[in-house]
Write a protein that binds this DNA or RNA. Structure first.
Lengths: 176, 176
DNA sequence: ACCAGTGGAGAACGTGCGTTCTCCGGTAGT
DNA sequence: ACTACCGGAGAACGCACGTTCTCCACTGGT
């Protein structure tokens, strides 16, 4: 197995397990089992669990934002499409909320790299929304709606939170 | 030491430690040390850590909502006062986000009692907001803003998220 | 066929922690 | 004063898990 293939399989397994069960609940041995990569290789690739966690978050950030960006772009970059995408996401079988918010909750004092990955994800999403709507204030308001809807959908299990937020966003965009 | 006093000291210590560092990062021995209650008494009062966690969440729910309710009531039950209260909260030295959202993130599959405490807290807050504004839809929209502002303030450390959400709420209330 | 080296499987190690157990000093009742 | 018990301090236990170590099968070159 080539090193890049091992890295891919590790990150794939890490994402499936960490997102579904939480980082702390998943042992390195479970990542090994799921990925089929030996422990030795695992620790050669990621010298410590923290490194794997950080890489998991950074990869998820890229993919998550790419998925959102593409969906919204296909709708003519309509800011309201963000909330349609959210509704789809909330409806996915394994939906368990925002991986970054969850990780933030998991680690009272996260390792610096992990904390940075979390903060940078939120910064990137905010920047994306600011590019989507004219007016930073409205963009930040939508951001708050996005985060709130995500958290509530995760806890209540109700994807309709996206629609509630969408209606609010519509009003804010019309008034902004 | 009377049993109710032991319970109080345990819950006080648990809240300080669990909220500040996260539940998983705090051992039962740390709760014992902080509370001054012996391990034996601790386990007599709360047979397992999960029971202490659930009690911690339920007590925090009561106090958190009471504080919000009183503050807002003193401002004539103006829904916008919710966001003023949030700003104060976000500015407190030990602010680390919503204890319930953090706990939700900590436990991939929480114990039933803990999961119920989290869900019920959000249900209560939603019900409170619905009582504050006429129109369930607008109340739910404000709720989303509240949760989003809380999460973002925790991650970015910027209490100004409350003001951003407040402006959005003002528009929604005017239009609703 | 032999040998060096690579990588995998899984044992082993150390630590932290939830929970239980042991022991002992103090106290109340006689 | 003696005894029976209550509660506290902290040791002990069992387990889980992050990390490292050991051993061995296999491969490629001669």
């Amino acid at each position: 197995m080539t090193p890049t293939e091992a890295t891919d399989r590790l990150l794939e397994a890490a994402e499936e397990l960490f997102y579904a069960h939480g980082v702390q609940a998943v042992g390195m041995d479970a990542v090994r089992a799921r990925s089929g990569v030996s422990l030795k290789r695992l620790y050669q690739t990621f010298p410590a669990k923290n490194d794997l966690v950080e890489a998991y978050l950074r990869r998820r950030d890229e993919r998550w934002r790419a998925s959102l960006r593409e969906f919204v772009h296909a709708r003519g970059d309509d800011p309201l499409a963000v909330f349609d995408w959210l509704r789809n996401w909330f409806s996915e079988p394994g939906f368990r909320g925002c991986a970054f918010i969850n990780s933030f909750g998991e680690f009272g004092e996260p390792a610096p790299g992990v904390a940075a990955a979390i903060r940078e994800h939120k910064d990137q999403v905010r920047a994306y929304l600011r590019g989507l709507v004219s007016g930073e204030t409205v963009a930040d308001q939508l951001f708050s709606l996005v985060e709130g809807a995500t958290v509530l959908a995760a806890i209540t299990g109700n994807p309709g939170e996206a629609s509630t937020a969408r209606e609010a966003a519509k009003v804010l965009l019309a008034q902004g």
